[in-house]
Design a protein around this nucleic acid. Structure first.
Lengths: 344, 344
DNA sequence: CTGAAAGCGCTTACAG
DNA sequence: CTGAAAGCGCTTACAG
């Protein structure tokens, strides 16, 4: 409503046409011929007049009407476990940027990593008629993706991958290997892994990469030293507690597949009188902004999160064009900081 | 596209009508009469048949078509400084929940707290024809809100407030007062404030509340002891550095208007050989999940972030109904932890 | 109780 | 080069 209390009606094609004394379809044609000269849409002169008036009146096409006609909404749906997970929030920033650049808008919804909720949110998105879906919470044991494929819904995975589906992720196995090489070089021989949720490829791949590399280097690592856990600080606390109880002698280094789990680990270590970086080396994953800012800066495998989000958008656009799309894995790099700098 | 490569066409009202041998308008009427019996829309028998077939075929109305007709999109636009700020991410979770419950979808966009970007994102949202806006990055010195009001755009503020506009926020002045009372009772007499960005009501109100209460209690606090700063960890680091240089003798307690700034403070204190909770008391704000999980748990003013998001949705819905809406301030509570537990 | 029509704002073949 | 028409999928007065 404007100051007088009545809703401001938007300018339409018809308004423009009436003002110019031409037919709405001509206006539409001009506004669609994107190049400088209206290629066959109208005379150069008409085109100019149309464009000028459109700018003057601030014409912006009604997306609902356009969608109804074209059967495309230029909207993407994005599903993440939770946006309050910094990792997903940053990936979403990449998505938003890339989508906006390509003229798409995005819906995000939280699934709380619950398959039931994921399915419900997916249906809401499809009811909204999004052109495609970016799924950030794929479960290795789920069947949602199979169903979506059968229904012909275009989608790509992000953050987590599943064999056989297009995805934009970090090369998590490589990230795990980087952490293993680093700790080995620092002289550690007894290590443990805070492994994350076994249904997420991020957790599985990072852990597998770490263990593979560790064994390649000649190291030993028992099953007891690999503790699956939640991704958050509480998960890191609990896992560290378990590791300290189960492993005798205790490890000299920990690899946490997530920075937040690593932060939880720091807390538990402290309450056992152990200081990170001095009594126990620690490497996290993602290199979220907090890692470098902690009182004792945390070593972390840097994941190009913004880039992963942007890549997901590019992949989805290619899927929409009917291209067959492969999984893309972006390279991680290791950032060594005080938490694991000491040479044993 | 389905397995055969052709897009799955959604079921329409016309499809239902054809199958039932009745007119589409009758189907529409039935599907709109929400109560058990179709109140005047059709015979009970017809209504039943319509509903059954709709369920069977998984009919879901095309929102673009509906919007075009009703001139409402049932979409809200949400603008936040950044979703990678945990505080805004959690408020957004509240928004998403409340919006979904009311049958609304939400777009979020990041403004990076830049007025230019905020304006651009606002225009994108309006071009999408959202029914209303939730603005989470209001600047005390901006003029966007004035313009939006003149254009008759329905909106509410969230997180930050501005006199004269409807808003859902924490009672930040009260939060500041709680922190002041607590530190005073613990015996502190020299304090400093990491005050945040002066263009944000959160920063201004929390700081003013703290200072007011401190003076009420008979305390003194100089201008040098109030340092404006960014809201993030780097802001907290820099501000703490300034405080340690400017104040002689140094304070015994710090109040940071944001948990992340507080985390930055911990880092700077450590590099000066000061341990939080022992050598310097520290209180943060928001009680984000990290606060209680830090190696030295951080005292923090708890802000009901999810509830603030939900409230913003309720307010906006009332604005849409034409109601005149007041600012709502939700009560904070103080969580005392190790970082400020010591009695001087 | 139900049908028929108009129209929301656009796009897109089809004529001329 | 431009106009006229049809139609995307709905909703909503208006008849009967």
């Amino acid at each position: 409503m404007n100051p007088k209390g009545s809703a401001e009606r938007a300018v339409t094609l018809k308004d423009l046409a009436a003002r110019l004394g031409i037919h709405p379809s001509t206006v539409s044609r001009v506004l669609h011929s994107d190049s400088a000269q209206a290629r066959g849409a109208a005379s150069a002169e008409t085109a100019l007049r149309v464009r000028e008036l459109a700018r003057e009146l601030g014409y912006s096409p009604d997306p609902q009407a356009t969608s109804l006609r074209t059967r495309r909404t230029r909207m993407f749906g994005v599903i993440v476990p939770r946006l309050s997970d910094l990792v997903l929030a940053i990936m979403y920033e990449g998505i938003e940027e890339a989508a906006a650049e390509a003229g798409y808008s995005t819906f995000v919804m939280n699934s709380r990593d619950d398959p039931e909720e994921e399915r419900r949110k997916t249906e809401i998105m499809l009811a909204r008629r999004v052109d495609g879906l970016i799924i950030g919470d794929a479960h290795l044991d789920g069947n949602l993706l199979h169903d979506l494929t059968n229904r012909g819904v275009p989608f790509v995975l992000m953050n987590r991958r599943i064999e056989g589906y297009p995805s934009a992720t970090c090369d998590d196995a490589l990230g795990g290997r980087l952490a293993a090489s680093h700790l080995w070089e620092k002289g550690h021989r007894r290590v443990a892994v805070i492994a994350g949720e076994p249904y997420a490829s991020t957790a599985v791949d990072r852990t597998a990469g770490f263990v593979d590399r560790w064994r390649e280097l000649g190291g030993a690592i028992s099953e007891d030293a690999i503790v699956w856990s939640r991704f958050d600080t509480v998960g890191g606390r609990d896992a560290t507690e378990k590791i300290l109880h189960a492993c005798a002698p205790p490890p000299t280094a920990l690899f946490a597949v997530n920075d937040f789990a690593a932060i939880g680990a720091i807390g538990t270590l402290r309450s056992h009188g152990l200081q990170v970086g001095r009594d126990m080396a620690l490497v996290g994953y993602n290199d979220t902004s907090l890692a470098s800012q902690l009182p004792i800066p945390l070593s972390s495998v840097h994941s190009p999160m913004n880039e992963i989000g942007r890549t997901a958008v590019q992949l989805l656009r290619r899927v929409l064009k009917g291209e067959h799309v492969q999984a893309v894995q972006l390279r991680p790099t290791l950032c060594v900081r005080e938490s694991s700098a000491l040479q044993l």
